[in-house]
Each structure stands twice: as C-alpha cells, then as structure tokens.
Design a binder for these strands. Structure first.
Lengths: 228, 228
DNA sequence: CAGTCTCATGACTTGAGGTCAGACATGAGT
DNA sequence: ACTCATGTCTGACCTCAAGTCATGAGACTG
C-alpha cells in the first residue's frame, strides 16, 4: 500500500509533464487488462506481474505508468465508473415519465448490462467494498468531484418537476439516493455475480421486478411528494 | 489472502478438538491487540509481526491460533460487532416511546460511544469496506447468521406496535434498516474518525442532531405508518 | 549526428504473510 | 519420579508479490 501520501493519483510523470505523448495507447491497454484481472480475481489476488506478462510487457513498465497497484486500480475504477450511464442519459420517452420512472428504467437496465459486460460492475464493486480505506478515501473524493452518475443534476431535475420533497435540502436527497441506489444495485448484481456476498438474498430470478417496484415505492415515500 | 477455500474460519485446531484448554486467555489477548492494530493502521498496514512483538510472542503463534491474517481479522471483527448493543437493549423508558425513538436513542448514543471506545467501530468499518470481497462474504454470512444487532427482533417489535407498514415483507424492512442504519452510522462516525472517507460530509459538529432527526424522518416515511 | 527527452526493461531489493521441525510445557498413568 | 502423549510456542526459514532503478533503445530537435 506504499504508505501514507503515496503518489496514488499522479503517476511519477517526468519533469516537463508534456500532456501525453504516444504512450496513451499503452496506458489504455494496461487499464483494460487490469480491469479484467481485478474483476476476475479480486483486488488482492490480481497480480501486477500477470497483467504485465499477459500484455507482453515488463512489470516495471506498469509501475512507471501508474506508480503502484493502488494507482492502477484507481485508474481502472475510474474508467469503470465513467463507462456507466448518467441518470439523465435515459431515453426521452422515459424521462417524460419522471424521476422515479427513470430510476426504474436504470435498475432494469443494469440487469441486462451486467450480462453483456460485467467487468466494470465488478470493478466498481471492488472499489466500493473490497480494497482499502486509504483507497476508498481517494475513490470518494473522485465520486464527489466528478459525480459520474450525474446525481446532482438528476435530483435537481426531480425537484423542478415537483416530484421531490421541498423540505429536504438537496444535499440530503443526493446522499440518500446515492446510498440506497448503490446498495440496492450492488445487492441486485452480486446476487448474480457473487451469491452470498450480501445479506438478505431473497428469492432470486423473476421476483426481481417486484423487488424493484417495492424498492422504488419505499424510496418515493422517503424523498418524494406523496402520491395523489 | 491464501487463496480460495483457505481455512479462514477454522484455525488449524489439532485432531481431537478439545474445546479450549487454557490458551483461551492468549487468544483473547491476541484478538484485543489485533483490534487495536487494525483500528489504528487499517487492514493492510497492520502487521501481524507487530502484533506479535507487542505481545512478546512469536508471530508463528498467531498463525497457529488463527490460521491467517484474514482469520485473525475475522475474529477481531466478530468481537467488535458483538460488543455493540442490540436495538432492544435500549432502556425501558426509551423502548416505551417506540420504534423510531429507539433508533434515535442509539444514533445519539453511538456518538458518545465512539469517543469512549472507538476501536470496535473502526474495526467494523474495516470489515464493511476495507478488506477484501472474500472476507466480506464471510462477514456477511456471519451477520446473517448471528444478526448481532437483533434487527429481526427489532423489526418484529415495530410491527407488533403497529409502527411499521404491513404491506412490506419483514425481509425487505430488515434489509432497508440494515443498509441505511449502517450507512448513516458509518457516515456519522467517519466524519469524526476519518474525515473525507465518505461523500457528502455536511457541516460537522452541532448540526448532527438535526441530521439524525432528518434521517429518522426520511426513514419513518419509507417504512413507517404515516403519522396522524 | 549529437543531444535530450521519453519510455521500456529485467534483474534486484524489500518485506510481509505463512510454514514447520523441533523445543517446551502440562497432565495422567504407573 | 519417570515417561509418554498431547498440546503449545518458537524462530529460523521460505515464498512470493510489490516496488526500485541503472541502463539502454527509440524518437524527436536543432
């Protein structure tokens, strides 16, 4: 973990910091391979050496680019998270149906996306629960700074449509949404990728839609305007 | 991490498995020291060797007792979690005030307890977010099996008092309560122990009570019967 | 073509987790 | 007391992955 204040974020770029010469492609290839390895093996079991040899490059090269295993994971994590859609990327017709229908849409979608390409989901799961508090702090800073799912804008959207309570500050709603969605989604997907990881499994398969509805109902009561 | 199916749970007890001779005291001392080290340094940074030398014993001895660093942490985690109160341990007068007041009571208490003895809180935090998915799976199995906070009984209590919705199955309520309480509590306490670990900090100090109230309000709407 | 920069390399160091053969302790049976 | 068996402790040892760095190959500049 290379101690406190390690150069986790910034690879040890050389003095002049010329934005990015031509090694961009290599970085990308490393990150992609790393995502696969982390996703398949977990953080600890993944070996930097394996990633290097799979790519036919030297291990030292990876450290030159990313500074540490943590640094490499962090990049992989960022890439994974950035590959996810933002709330307001939902199709226009769904958006017309409002805040909670957008949520339903994405929850349903997630399920499909998982099967098509589960790697980024797994990597984000690792970032959320399976690395180290030092790294998690970094990750939270990133999430806070980038808001990669566009939660803030989405909540504003809901408020403007009058679907959300006015008596809660936006900060609080954003927090609640982040927490519960993350957790619910993690529960949904670990059910498939990783049975037994989360508590309270419930009965798999087709009850999933019912659970989504139930979850949304609870969420609506919590932060939404009471239904007519 | 010693691979899949490592003897994480069961220390390599010898053939006859005589329940526990006299080494019980030693196990306890090791676990206590381990809790301190994990709490202070985090999972990775904590060194088994340090724990051993602090106790003036051989490192090998620890491995004999707990099989692996994971195994040791798992025991520390269990001890930490078991040291927390159960929901229904609240004083009688508080219990008389009902489900949500019990929650408020514990949330307020947590704050004080943290200052008195923050070590177990930190250890449970590590178990929740800062180790490894393999271990987390073990931890979740444990939480599910032991229900150390007595959430199930507590929810039943709330249902019997008619404070909780009837149209949600108990399983769902328990999940929601577990999730949100864990998360909210983690947010409260990391604010003190570990600023910057969680997103959305809010303004520290004295607004805490207001936040608790707000949180309970949201929770009541989500899973409680609508107020008169 | 010399000079300078970036980038790649792989042998090397470090250090923590984990192992194990043997020393040591304990208690029961004779 | 002596022995044997069982259980416990030890510390030297092993393994293996993260991380380092001197060196050198390319590539661009003037």
């Amino acid at each position: 973990m290379s101690g406190i204040g390690s150069n986790l974020v910034s690879p040890p770029r050389y003095r002049h910091m010329p934005p990015r010469p031509r090694s961009e492609g290599k970085r990308t290839r490393i990150i992609d391979a790393a995502m696969r390895h982390f996703a398949e093996q977990g953080y600890h079991a993944a070996r930097v050496g394996d990633i290097a040899s799979e790519l036919g490059i030297a291990k030292g090269s990876i450290f030159q680019h990313f500074g540490s295993k943590d640094g490499l994971f962090f990049e992989a994590y960022k890439k994974a998270v950035r590959s996810f859609p933002r709330y307001l990327d939902a199709p226009a017709d769904v958006q017309g149906k409002g805040f909670f229908e957008i949520l339903r849409y994405w929850l349903a979608c997630t399920e499909h996306l998982i099967h098509e390409d589960w790697i980024p989901y797994r990597v984000s799961l690792l970032g959320n629960y399976g690395t180290d508090l030092t790294l998690k702090r970094e990750i939270n800073r990133f999430l806070l700074a980038e808001d990669p799912y566009g939660t803030v804008a989405f909540v504003r959207f809901g408020q403007e449509r009058g679907e959300l309570r006015q008596d809660l500050d936006q900060e609080m709603i954003v927090s609640i949404l982040d927490w519960t969605m993350e957790r619910f989604q993690d529960a949904l997907l670990t059910e498939e990728l990783d049975p037994g990881l989360f508590r309270r499994h419930g009965d798999v398969a087709e009850k999933k839609e019912a659970r989504i509805t139930q979850f949304l109902d609870v969420l609506r009561r919590a932060i939404g305007i009471a239904e007519p």
